[in-house]
Design a protein around this nucleic acid. Structure first.
Lengths: 173, 173
DNA sequence: TATTGTTATACTCTATAACTATA
DNA sequence: TATAGTTATAGAGTATAACAATA
């Protein structure tokens, strides 16, 4: 590629600038300036989301549940008798991608697919007894560890305001 | 797999329940109950993040910039003279994955890699003139379309409070 | 010996087309 | 003809190991 004349000049200046600076471990490299990045909603949203998912995974590690799997179990429990298409589309999961997810949950005996007697193309989804028990334990872990950690950080009122704003963005943006 | 006795029973009940309900387009399927899902921070965070990225892409579509590319340009502009490792790690991008990203930006003449005269292993990153111009246009589009849309939805004060809370989560959770 | 940029590679997510069985 | 579940597949995004050049 070709670099413009002025780009070359500023590049030389930049390269010169590093001459006086020692690299670690000789000296601690100065932290970079985030600048406008720290005000970019998308940026902080993505970083926060990664942290929250990471913490969620740690909190329910004993149950081996991902945030996506937890959301499926919650939705099936709340809406018994719905089929795969309905559950998947509500969660924003494409039907083809939902198949392997359900295979996993079903192989662990957490939920079951039942052929609908009404429309034999459909698979009705239900939680097994084990699925209900695991979900109940997951809810307790999430409340006592995950949500509690967040309440400590923000305060309960702020946490609720945060969720309200995020819901508004998710639904109306 | 095997379904427990009670799971079979609730499954039959669930299958029965669908008999009386017509599927679309014969009748509108009732919307599912989100239940506790709408209070799960991780869930609303992820859905909101997807919407925000989607809107960002539309707003800067004329410049063909992704949120990740925008963040690289912003950070390089704010921190001229830093190398690939420093820029990548600040953004949470792994060095191997940063190579293709830079190849893309450099092939479009938006930024340039310059061998450091100080440490010939390093590539100093700088924006080209075109990169600076594109970034300036991107900032204007983001401010006038993306951020403005968000201010309309939440109000400026709420938008700032939201970013402050997300930053806190990203940095301290 | 350690670090920078790089390649190769693999695994997860996400997205689309097309098949089957049912309607 | 259309729909539900499925398969195959392709593309992002993300992760680790290892190599060449340099320190």
């Amino acid at each position: 590629m070709t670099v413009s004349k002025t780009a070359e000049k500023s590049a030389e200046k930049a390269a010169e600038a590093t001459k006086g600076r020692k690299d670690p471990p000789e000296a601690l490299a100065e932290a970079l300036q985030l600048g406008e990045l720290s005000e970019q909603l998308g940026y902080v949203l993505k970083r926060a989301q990664l942290k929250v998912f990471e913490n969620f995974l740690r909190c329910v590690a004993s149950l081996q549940l991902t945030p996506a799997q937890f959301s499926v179990l919650l939705l099936v429990e709340k809406n018994p008798g719905r089929n795969q298409t309905e559950i998947a589309s509500t969660l924003g999961i494409l039907r083809p991608n939902f198949v392997a997810m359900l295979d996993n949950l079903e192989s662990r005996d957490l939920c079951a697919r039942i052929r609908s007697t009404n429309d034999r193309r459909s698979h009705i989804l239900v939680l097994t007894d084990k699925g209900k028990a695991v979900l109940a334990r997951a809810k307790k872990l999430v409340a006592s560890k995950h949500e509690a950690r967040l309440n400590d950080l923000l305060g309960t009122a702020n946490r609720e305001a945060l969720i309200a704003m995020l819901s508004k963005i998710a639904n109306e943006f």
